Amino acid sequence: MVQFSVIVPTYNRLSYLKHCLESIAAQTCAPFEIIVVDDGSTDGTVEWLQNTHPEIRAIRQQNAGPGAARNRGAAEASGDYLAFLDSDDLWPPWALSTYRDLLKRYDRPSLLFARYRDFAELPDFGLLEAATAEVYANFAASHKVAAFAGGGMMVARRDAFVYAEGFPEDRLNGEDHDLALQLSDAPGFVRVVSPVTVAHRVHSGNEMGDVEKTVLGVIRLVEREEAGAYPGGRSLASARREIISRHARPAILEAAKTGHSTAAGDLYQRTLSWHLAKGRYKFLAAAGFSLAIRKLRMSDSG
């Protein structure tokens, strides 16, 4: 039996939260418990929850960021799996049943990434398909594929989450990548291939829209890797660095394009040897050229 503790962090998104909770209530596999962590909202979120959803455990804390909110929910959870969902996103009715079936099929892995689809107005879940997945010995073993999921698209076995010490709480982006890397050697990683299990809402308030926070978040991953903070030691170093480099490349290019040259240049230099080791010469040339052009334009404008 799989018991899901559903954890929803929220901050001033009451209108979105209502739809999010409706999607949880519509699950064909009922969750063991639902925990909503209000991260210092001023829009009446907790009061609304207490008045309309007494069955949901509502926790209020001072604003500390999404990582801290997820950690707070995890600390209060008692299910054997933690299913994270952001308050502006939605689940199709089959999300938890898909997770349950895959977790049972693959011997209760430590970490699962959802299959997500972006939406802006109306969610498109597509058709319900048979549950299929890519399966790896651990997260590090997936280094050759572009395995990505935001913090609200992850399912983690609770004991593995405790072992990883949760999400970082420094308010930078990439806290989801850090958690996955903390579980580099934890047994069992599953990446959902079908069906779609999360509808990810794209809007102006998405944290990933902050380019500088994204670059600084990737730099944090690099620093933690260089400091030996991730498990697996030297035997998994190449795999971990390939995973981090895959996040670094789009961050560098986007930062250079949007004028965050200092941060982009710093990340470029910090990962230069990693990219050279993997033969990423086209990327290094393109990124170097973009940074040089930006520097020339800034010099001319000054």
Rank of each mutant, 00 (worst) to 15 (best):
P93E: 01
L96T: 09
L96W: 07
L96Y: 10
S97N: 12
T98S: 07
L103K: 03
L103P: 03
R105L: 15
R108E: 12
R108A: 14
P109F: 15
L111P: 07
L112S: 02
F113D: 02
F113L: 05
A114Q: 10
A114D: 11
R115V: 11
Y116L: 12
Y116M: 14
R117G: 04
R117L: 10
D118V: 08
F119H: 02
F119V: 03
A120I: 02
A120T: 05
L122H: 13
L122Q: 13
P123V: 13
L127A: 09
L127P: 00
L128E: 02
A130C: 10
A131Q: 08
T132Y: 08
E134W: 07
E134P: 02
Y136L: 01
N138V: 00
A140C: 00
A140W: 00
A141P: 02
S142G: 02
H143C: 05
K144W: 04
A146G: 10
A147F: 09
F148K: 04
G150H: 07
G151N: 06
G152M: 12
M153Y: 03
R157M: 01
R157Q: 04
R158S: 07
R158G: 03
R158P: 04
D159G: 04
A160Y: 09
A160E: 07
F161D: 06
F161V: 07
F161P: 02
Y163R: 13
Y163L: 12
Y163D: 12
E165T: 15
E165L: 14
E165M: 14
G166Y: 10
F167G: 06
F167H: 11
E169R: 12
